[in-house]
Measured scan of single mutants.
Amino acid sequence: DHDVVPEDKFQETLHLKEKEGCPQAFHALLSWLLTQDSTAILDFWRVLFKDYNLERYGRLQPILDSFPKDVDLSQPRKGRKPPAVPKALVPPPRLPTKRKASEEARAAAPAALTPRGTASPGSQLKAKPPKKPESSAEQQRLPLGNGIQTMSASVQRAVAMSSGDVPGARGAVEGILIQQVFESGGSKKCIQVGGEFYTPSKFEDSGSGKNKARSSSGPKPLVRAKGAQGAAPGGGEARLGQQGSVPAPLALPSDPQLHQKNEDECAVCRDGGELICCDGCPRAFHLACLSPPLREIPSGTWRCSSCLQATVQEVQPRAEEPRPQEPPVETPLPPGLRSAGEEVRGPPGEPLAGMDTTLVYKHLPAPPSAAPLPGLDSSALHPLLCVGPEGQQNLAPGARCGVCGDGTDVLRCTHCAAAFHWRCHFPAGTSRPGTGLRCRSCSGDVTPAPVEGVLAPSPARLAPGPAKDDTASHEPALHRDDLESLLSEHTFDGILQWAIQSMARPAAPFPS
């Protein structure tokens, strides 16, 4: 592969990997390779389809078979030569091979799209000592099968071997295949498990690692696999990028399955594409389908809103127990993405979901129960707010008499603000006073009005108090039968009158 990737590009890729991570280095090298001529790309395919690569990765054979028959990708048995050289000459001794072996032994695996480039050397060096003999053996194999790289107009793939297949390693990572398949204008990513390549439709969760975000852009890794992070704060999961590491605690105790298979379609829109997988259930989501939507993949363990709600429900009964003089119970939860139609709101002032922060849900004790107040519409209280300059209440639009249902020339009671006709409430011909108009209920007259088809109010509507207090003497005590009587009149003013009279009014101040 030294004929494909020059030394300066190799060093530039290593520097970019240390600065921005393996995914960015892979993407940059792939983009550079696509700008080369067809001879360089053909050399790339020839390096990929060597015999030892085909033996190690069985899924490469179907890719090789898909090439046109007129494309010669065979390799000479006596060494490598550029395709432009007409004579089959043995190339001179390859010093770059020693360079590659020494550099890969030092860096474990470079971040390139060629056999030198995919593992994360920093994480491997940190986690190597417990498994040094086995990992050293794996390093000797890295130059042979560490990076199976493929690129063409139909298929483009980048393979990364790992030393996680050490025997006896619980939940060992089998390997990473960062794979971009450009077929019919689409893009897919796969993962390699035990020599087999699994596409998103049959993606397997190998051991402790999972394909957290099938994305090839942005600074985030394709698999949430930063070796420096180790395990999740809650004892979460091992990262795919942690090559040759000792077994780590796999999943939280509440995880239903340690080796679950995540779905390959969004649980909201039932469509495929780039998904984020939940650590607590097999569901996966688009970032845009979450509520609120996320802009980037959160670091650490992530769970959907259903799993978060289940966790909150487990903690909430203990938080609601009476604990005198104790601060509110704080339950730190990872930043969760909410699927459509589901929402768990945190306290005000918290950062938005999706940031690399930890939301704190506070379970406050329930407030003391209070008697429910009568629910009145805002339009129902409008007549009470229509007060004239002299303190006389004006008529609201649409006000109707509670007896006849007519809204023409209605009066407004100064005591309960109900609309009424003087002739309907006082049919006996009582003279109307000039000021202080009161309806039949507030004036103490319980004589029913002779209106055909309208039920008369119940005599129990009024329960006047002592006459010594004029204001308190007109406080009506309405009961269920009074409400039914008012409802039978089918008037809004009657219902409003009952609601206003049912509310307690402050006692009249004593004259000074």
Rank of each mutant, 00 (worst) to 15 (best):
G402C: 12
A463M: 15
D377E: 11
A288I: 14
P365A: 11
E320P: 12
S369V: 09
R432W: 12
P348G: 11
E475C: 08
A370S: 06
G405F: 06
A456W: 08
E475M: 05
H286Q: 14
E320G: 09
A267E: 08
A353R: 11
Q313I: 10
A460T: 08
H474K: 07
A370H: 10
T408Q: 14
A399S: 05
G244S: 04
D255V: 12
A417C: 07
L290M: 15
L359N: 08
Q309I: 10
L258N: 02
H474L: 10
L258Q: 08
P506V: 04
C307K: 15
L462F: 12
P464E: 04
L411R: 12
R480K: 08
S378P: 11
T311V: 08
T357L: 13
P256V: 11
P374W: 12
C289E: 15
L373Y: 10
F510W: 13
C304S: 14
C416M: 00
L337I: 13
P368D: 11
P464D: 03
P464L: 14
G402R: 10
R318P: 10
P249R: 08
L308P: 09
V268P: 06
A319L: 11
A417S: 08
S305T: 13
V446M: 11
E484R: 10
V387D: 06
P511C: 09
A428R: 08
L384G: 06
L376K: 08
S502F: 04
F492E: 00
H286P: 14
Q309F: 11
L478M: 06
P427H: 11
C404A: 02
L384H: 05
A396K: 02
L337P: 11
L333E: 14
S369W: 13
V329Y: 14
E320M: 13
E326V: 11
R400C: 09
P365S: 09
Q243F: 11
G241W: 15
Q309S: 12
P464N: 11
G244L: 09
P347E: 09
L275M: 11
E265C: 01
L455W: 14
G272P: 09
Q393D: 07
H474A: 09
W498L: 06
G273M: 04
L359Q: 12
H479K: 05
E452H: 05
M503E: 05
C413I: 02
D469I: 10
P433V: 11
P247E: 12
G398S: 09
T430W: 11
E330F: 14
